[in-house]
Simulated assay, not measured.
Amino acid sequence: MKRYLYIVLFASLLFAGCEQKPSLQKYFVANSDNKDFISLDLAPTFINVEKVSLSAAEKEALESFKRINVLAFKSDSLNQNKFNEEREKVNTILKDKSYQQLMRVGSGKEGGAVYFVGQDEHIDEFVLYANKKENGFAVVRVIGDDMNPTDVLNLMRLMQKANIDMEQLKPLQALMQP
């Protein structure tokens, strides 16, 4: 009898310990197959560095980088209610204390922001969020291990001078067109 009591107690603690709050990861999973969204998962190999000499800082940034997840919603005149609803979901998720804002540009309704998850020198995720009523919104998750803000800047510089596999980015072209 005690054995069953322990099993029930353990199961209840297990379920009580699971977080039910929304997160970007859950949002990405829920919408990755949704026809209203464009979803991309990019591995570090999309940055072709074979013919590029890397500095020590760029090597370190590349080693700390695991993948990039992109989720974008293209807005048009027919889906403004859905756009506002989805944008509000993302804004609510990003208000959680685990997402720390680094900077913001633009106004409250249009613009962008950069967030991070982790501590100053041990960041696990950078989030870039941009939205504009005419185009839609995009959420980009840069996921890595023990990254810091300098790593992300070095990664961006590296992407500028390396060969990027543009074929993997084709789905985003529809979002960029007016």
Rank of each mutant, 00 (worst) to 15 (best):
S98L: 02
S32C: 04
K132Y: 09
L9I: 15
K35S: 08
P44K: 11
L13V: 12
F126E: 00
C18M: 09
S55K: 02
S53N: 13
K74C: 05
Y99H: 04
F83N: 09
E125L: 08
N34V: 01
Q25C: 00
F126S: 01
Q20H: 04
L24C: 01
A130R: 13
N91C: 08
L71W: 06
E88I: 03
I7A: 13
E60N: 13
K133V: 14
V8N: 06
A43D: 13
Y115S: 00
Y4G: 15
D120K: 14
K95Y: 00
Q25T: 05
T45A: 15
A56D: 00
S64T: 06
Y129V: 06
D96R: 04
N91D: 15
K2D: 14
Y129G: 05
Y99A: 03
S107M: 14
L54T: 09
I38N: 05
A56I: 01
V117W: 06
Q101I: 13
S64N: 10
K89N: 14
Y6D: 10
L14K: 02
F46T: 08
V29S: 04
E88V: 04
L54C: 08
L54Y: 04
A43I: 11
L128G: 09
A56G: 01
K21S: 09
T92G: 01
D96E: 01
S32P: 00
V90N: 08
E86I: 02
L78I: 04
L62P: 07
L9Y: 14
R67D: 04
Y129A: 06
V49C: 07
Q25F: 03
E58T: 05
M103H: 10
V114P: 03
E134F: 08
S32I: 02
D33S: 08
D124K: 09
S107K: 15
D96T: 00
I123A: 10
V114F: 07
S32E: 14
Q20G: 07
V49F: 08
L42T: 09
L94H: 07
R104P: 04
D76P: 01
N84S: 13
Y99M: 03
H122E: 11
N91S: 12
